[in-house]
Amino acid sequence: MAVAYGSQPGRRGTDSPREGEAGGLYVTRDAVPRRAYLKPRKREHGPFGCRAAREKIVADLARDLGVAVPPVLLFVRHDAPQGEETSCCVSLVLYGRQFPWHQIKRWVEDPTQSERIMELVMRDLPVSAARALVLNAWVMQSEHGDHPHNIVFGLDSDGGPHFVYLDYALALGHRFVDDPHFRALGWRRWKDEEGWKAPVTVPFPPLMLQHVSRSEVDATLSRVEDFPEGEVQAVVGRIPGDYLHEQERDILIAGLVGRRRLIRAPLERQLMGSGGGT
């Protein structure tokens, strides 16, 4: 598979390894008339990282739940520079114009800046954010606080508005949550004494929380609670062994199946505590 690399959307070429935590870059392929984002670049040692597998698993679950996470394909980067990750994935760029949440939220904070733009932004926010919030609780997504980049707002070719939720490389109880900040909040790695049972509150932009559709939260929660165990096993089980260690696969299946019915109460408390939801 011939792929051209470039960190920037407008050109191909080399780049500097200074992007996000896992490192990523835009890629194209001559046979496919679309751009995608490849990650991770940074290699993670040991069997319990599996960032590309986490991205793929969550993207597939999201599709089944109707959450706006771009489709992900696993991709072996045979020509990776020495020391960089070879077990990668590519995430499709969905919309022609995309802007990070930090550039968009001002129209939600202060609708008087432009009621026309505020109306466009708010057209998609309540439902898409409700669905993403529930997915995030299910997969224990740690990366959607007021993070400036991991939620983007896109415009399709007809100008239709769509929020997109990105970066699940550290979800599903990744060791990243050993960070003292998360440990203090009760987060645990899923592999540690069934850490997936931890009833944590997942970070989410407070401004979005204020506007999530409560009825959509409820409907999405029901879809998660009824999500077939066999489908979880299929989604996780089809990840190749060089992307997902066998022991980790069992942990992820146990966590996803077990958490289906553990997230409603913490989520409802979170919404009540934030005064959010409409």
Binding site: Q8, R11, V93, G96
Partner: peptide, 14 residues
Amino acid sequence: VSFCLDLTDPRGYS
């Protein structure tokens, strides 16, 4: 700083 007119299109310009 450039603006990419179509982020999905590998042939798109900025």
